[in-house]
Amino acid sequence: MNSRYVIKIIKYALLQLVVAIFIIIWLAPLYAMLIGGFKTNIAAASTPIFTPPSHLSTEAYYFDWFGFGTLIGLEYPMMRQLLITVPVALASVILGSMGAYYFYVEMERRPWVSNLGFSIISLAAFLPAQTLIVPLIKLISSLGIYQTYWGLAFAYFVFYLPMSTLLMSMFLPVMPKYLLESARLDGARDWAIFWHVVFPIVLPGFLSTLIFVYLMVWQDFFVPLIIATKPSLYMLPIAARQYVGGYAILYNRSFAAGVITSAIPLIIFTFLGRYFIRGLAALGGGAKGL
């Protein structure tokens, strides 16, 4: 009896140990980024990455935030990033929810519409964005919105509205059909049904989609790469790229740039990670049970 208990304890300890090793490996880059950004230039020039700093310094952040010479500071790109990503993500998910609602109710009357629509939005969500680069640029140029915020927003919508619709389609089925029918018999038209009946019920799914899409929009590198190439339009990921390690860039500056870029998404992930994971799970068909 006693020895079996001891074996159980050992097994449990082993399990925790193995998991802990993986956890440490997974957190290592984050750790490096966080401590690295606070190192002084001298420390960055002479110490290995994983050793903790002896003195904390914000000189790297100062350098990255305001820029130097031809290096654009991250101050304005950060503001642009915040200003643009929020409305774009919000609009995407709201409009996407409406699209998902349409597919849901149309499934009865004309299933081929829903099937076709579903295939297209799946395609749009998973297709590599690079496949559309040539015609997209051509379209945006001919619309005259190349190198503008509108062009940026348009490109974001092309990729993220379908993804939002797809995710909301995965969350909508918790809506029992009879509630929709009851509302119809009560005289409500689609707009009223959507806002009064559907939306309150799928709110958790909406939040999951919103958080997921927001983080995807935030980290999008390719869309600004091809549309907002003028320095006055630099979005955060593009501006941060300047701080890739090289001759003039020490790693404390690279890591500070990394922290500036990842701060907001990581904070959101820490507090609202549950929603992000549910949004992610929706891409795989729900993954219920988590």
Partner: peptide, 20 residues
Amino acid sequence: SIFIYPLAVPPTASALIWLW
């Protein structure tokens, strides 16, 4: 969450870190 957090990190930042 710890295994998933890399997906929330902008790839730009990841690239910066891993290069170093």
